[in-house]
Design a protein around this nucleic acid. Structure first.
Length: 556
RNA sequence: GCGCCUGUAGCUCAGUCGGAUAGAGCAACGGCCUUCUAAGCCGUGGGUCGCAGGUUCGAAUCCUGCCAGGCGUACCA
């Protein structure tokens, strides 16, 4: 509707200019938008104000001129008005909304999708938790945000790949191996001191027990480094398998699991450093090798090879991001925990130093999750091994509630996640509020079939044009009409929570309608038209929940 | 110290490219089930958009400074 009004205005300006009534055919940065208050019409434009300078005319006079040349071949507009400093307000005929509903109804599952992305290849890398322990709630938020973002981008016409980067190399893996090995030694009857910098969780003991069951005391005879490496490999494999399972239970699937170690094995890290060294972006100082990230906007240069000869995490990240772009992605999006935000300038610098544009790389920071139970904070500390895992949360509140609630905030806003609230089945809990719409409509459709013999909902039930006249019905059509724009904006801004808020708005409008008007009325024509409306609402709810990775239940 | 994020109703938060009288939910209070699922709806209160300037027809939104909170600031990952 918005684009059609936009076109009408554009044509009117062109005609006015051709007729000599306007000095210019330019319209400036004009917008057509939905006014906040209904008194200002269904749609409004500021064209007269933004073009006042270029037209050298008063805004209200420009508005009058444009309206004089406005043509409405589609018979969309009931009336127009000029208001305030020069807004043009459009009041749409109810029949025009109904006609629009028919198109939406027929679009079905595809309504909301667009081709904005033009098939551009985008990679979204998310979660990427180190395989040194189970996923906790914070990872869950990252998983929900990353997955929904990938869905939204797909809907907007991008070709999206989901990737998980496995940090299976370097010190933290060795620490993991050592932690398991020490617990193993204890199982073999040795007295060992367990250092603070080792992983403390109970799962370490379980992994050690597995090693003990498989090898007996056999590891005692081995070289200690080899034994630690063996423990590390076993531990990382088991933990990673657990992470995969937890994510699967959470409804998140990755297209690719990318191993950091594979970069080293293929010599990619070394090659990346050498390449940058040849271009004098990497240089030697104080026995270490440094990357000139400060030439690309970072506050200082960063070490890639330490003076002990070991590469830094940053070095493999450079190689990794080069690899991403070499695989043909035009845009690379990383979803990180907010505590890594200081890392963004150097990573962006590295991408630019590697010959890509800095706008091809974007980082989404996902802020902290404060886990609460009945308003009281639940203590979490990875080091002490006392954390609430994602698997525990999913087991307690369910996948749908967890995913939905993770997406009820802007990702850069801290999130209070209350386990009790998530389980509540009242309107305090937005998950049920939205899902309930879908279930209620399913119930109406069942009833229509069982008791009224209406087995299928036909879009041509709307052809009469006059059946849907209630304000709540027009309101619902206006809302669902805005869905594609919501999805497009969510993709453009990388803010999937916009879909969540849209769904809550639509749910509220539906529940209000449901309480005021009966769908299955005596008047068959009205009932069929209303069935078409609610069936379409149900479809949009399903489409939106699908983007969030939340189920749309037939009954509750 | 420097950098990033946040600051909107009692609480939790929306607010897109700068638009007209700043919106929801919760909490509080008062109503609505003989009728398609009450996991729902309707109504009533409630605001110096952190503060101070600036930009302009117009600022919660953009710019500058300040205040408060969070996070970061390694040859750690």
């Amino acid at each position: 509707m918005k684009t059609r009004i936009y076109q009408m205005i554009g044509e009117a300006v062109a005609r006015a200019h051709a007729a000599g009534d306007l000095p210019s055919a330019q319209m400036g940065d004009m917008v057509v938008e939905i006014p906040k208050t209904e008194a200002h019409g269904d749609l409004a434009t500021n064209v007269a104000m933004v073009s006042a300078k270029v037209q050298r005319m008063a805004p209200r006079r420009i508005a009058e001129t444009i309206l004089a040349h406005l043509q409405d071949p589609g018979r969309l507009v009931a009336r127009t008005e000029i208001a305030g400093p020069g807004f043009i307000n459009f009041f749409i005929r109810p029949e025009a909304w109904t006609a629009l509903l028919k198109d939406i109804c027929m679009a079905g599952e595809s309504f909301g999708r667009s081709r904005d992305g033009k098939g551009q290849r985008v990679q979204v890398e998310f979660v990427s938790a180190n395989p040194t322990g189970p996923l906790h709630v914070g990872h869950g938020r990252g998983a929900a945000v990353g997955d929904a973002m990938a869905n939204v981008l797909s809907a907007a016409g991008y070709k999206v790949q989901r990737e998980y980067y496995i940090n299976d190399s370097g010190r933290q893996i060795r620490t993991l191996g050592r932690s398991v090995f020490l617990r193993y030694l204890a199982l073999c009857g040795r007295t060992v001191e367990f250092p603070e910098d080792c992983y403390q969780g109970a799962y370490i003991g379980e992994l050690a027990a597995e090693m003990h069951a498989a090898h007996g005391t056999g590891l005692l005879a081995m070289d200690e480094e080899a034994a630690v490496a063996l423990c590390a490999r076993h531990a990382a494999d088991v933990i990673l398998a657990g992470i995969r399972r937890d994510l699967e239970d959470f409804g998140v699937r990755f297209d690719r699991w990318f191993s950091e170690q594979s970069l080293y094995d293929a010599g990619r890290v070394e090659a990346a450093i050498e390449d940058l060294a040849r271009r004098a972006i990497v240089y030697d100082k104080d026995g270490a090798r440094w990357c000139r990230t400060s030439d690309f906007g970072d506050e200082k240069d960063r070490v890639v090879v330490r003076n002990n000869g070991l590469t830094t995490y940053f070095a493999s990240d450079i190689a990794y991001h080069q690899d991403k772009f070499e695989r043909g992605f035009e845009r690379v999006i990383d979803v990180w925990g907010a505590d890594h935000h200081g890392y963004i300038p150097r990573m962006t610098a590295a991408v630019e130093a590697s010959g890509r544009r800095r706008d091809q790389f974007q980082v989404i920071l996902v802020h902290l999750v404060n886990l609460l139970r009945g308003g009281q904070p639940v203590a979490m500390s990875t080091r002490a091994g006392e954390f609430v895992t994602l698997a525990e949360v999913v087991a307690e509140v369910g996948r749908d509630a967890a995913r939905f609630l993770f997406l009820t905030r802007h990702h850069e806003s801290p999130l209070d996640f209350d386990l009790e609230l998530a389980k509540q089945k009242t309107n305090d809990n937005p998950v049920y509020y939205v899902q309930y719409v879908h279930a209620r409509i399913s119930s109406i459709l069942r009833k229509a079939a069982d008791e009224y013999g209406i087995r299928s909902v036909q879009a041509d039930a709307l052809d009469g044009g006059g059946e849907l006249r209630e304000p709540e019905e027009i309101q619902l059509i206006k809302l669902i009409n805005g869905f594609p724009e919501v999805v497009a904006n969510a993709a453009a801004t990388l803010e999937p929570h916009r879909v969540t808020f849209f769904l809550m708005d639509l749910a509220a409008a539906f529940h209000a309608y449901y309480n005021r008007h009966r769908v299955l009325t005596e008047d068959g024509a009205v009932a069929r038209a209303r069935l078409c409306l609610v069936r379409t609402v149900q479809q949009i709810i399903a489409n939106g929940l699908g983007l969030l990775g939340v189920a749309a239940p037939e009954q509750m």
